Computed example of a mutant assay.
Amino acid sequence: MTRPLVITDCDEVLMHMVVPFAEWVDAEHGVIFRIEDASFANALKRKECGTPLEAAEVWPLLDGFFREEMTRQYPIPGALAAMAAIGAEADIVVLTNVGPEHQQARIDQLALHDFHAPVIGSRGGKGAPVRRLIEQYRPPVAVFIDDLAGHHRSVAEEAPEVWRLHFVGEPAIAGKIAASPHAHARIDDWKAAERWIMARLAEKIPAPAPQPV
């Protein structure tokens, strides 16, 4: 019988990202990172004048960080211990929106922390790649973990039978991010998250179909 499947994001779920990213853009680019609204772009402001960066300026910074500075990242407390426990019961795939060009760097980054799992560097909504993983693994039950509400909506649309856990492991931003209405639970602590995930795996019951509005 096939094993359960856990599909997890990396940044702010397994590894801290915004804090090391903020430290880097401040020190190297004269940019201050402040989460003040739902827009990542608006959170990046020039230190000298306070004006937000143009949208076209944001991706080169993110690309530069993931290309050269991923070693600045460090694990979310409890994440890797939880993954070890979960991995005894389920297959784990890391689905991360760093793009295919940074996929190997992400594999290497996680390996430095003795975490080894298949990694998919994707782009855009995660519903379609989650659907493909479900068709590939054919698990009796699957859990999806991500910090971004938009991905929970995407997965809810493409793979509604997958349990969805909204997890934001960075305290600096967790309180500023509303719980996704498309997730089945919002938990920002790995001890509690591990208990919730293990319960779903033990039950081996797919997520209920969404009720019509």
Rank of each mutant, 00 (worst) to 15 (best):
A22C: 06
A22Y: 07
A22V: 07
A22T: 03
A22F: 09
E23D: 11
E23T: 08
E23A: 06
E23N: 09
E23C: 02
W24K: 01
V25I: 14
V25S: 05
V25Y: 08
D26R: 07
D26G: 01
D26K: 01
E28H: 14
E28N: 14
H29T: 04
H29Q: 07
H29M: 04
H29E: 13
G30C: 00
G30E: 00
G30P: 04
G30F: 00
V31M: 13
I32P: 06
I32A: 15
F33H: 03
F33P: 05
F33R: 04
R34Y: 05
I35F: 08
I35Q: 04
I35N: 04
E36W: 08
E36K: 06
E36F: 09
E36H: 09
D37N: 07
D37Y: 01
D37V: 01
D37L: 02
A38I: 00
A38E: 03
A38Y: 08
A38D: 09
S39M: 02
S39K: 00
S39C: 02
F40K: 04
F40Y: 10
F40L: 07
F40Q: 06
A41P: 13
A41W: 07
N42C: 00
A43P: 12
A43I: 03
A43T: 04
A43D: 06
L44Q: 11
L44I: 12
L44C: 15
L44F: 11
K45A: 10
K45I: 09
R46Y: 13
R46W: 14
K47Q: 15
K47H: 12
K47F: 08
E48K: 02
C49N: 14
C49A: 01
G50S: 05
G50Q: 05
G50Y: 03
G50P: 10
T51Q: 14
P52M: 02
P52T: 07
L53K: 07
E54T: 00
E54Q: 06
E54K: 08
A55W: 15
A56D: 11
A56Y: 15
A56F: 15
E57Q: 14
V58R: 15
V58I: 14
V58N: 11
W59I: 09
W59P: 14
W59R: 13
W59E: 14
W59T: 09
P60T: 00
P60G: 06
L61H: 11
L61P: 11
L61E: 12
L62H: 02
L62P: 04
D63M: 00
G64C: 04
G64N: 10
F66K: 04
F66H: 04
F66N: 03
F66S: 01
R67N: 12
E68I: 02
E68Y: 01
E69Y: 10
E69D: 10
M70T: 08
M70S: 07
T71K: 03
T71E: 04
T71L: 01
T71W: 07
T71H: 06
T71V: 02
R72G: 08
R72Q: 05
R72Y: 14
R72A: 09
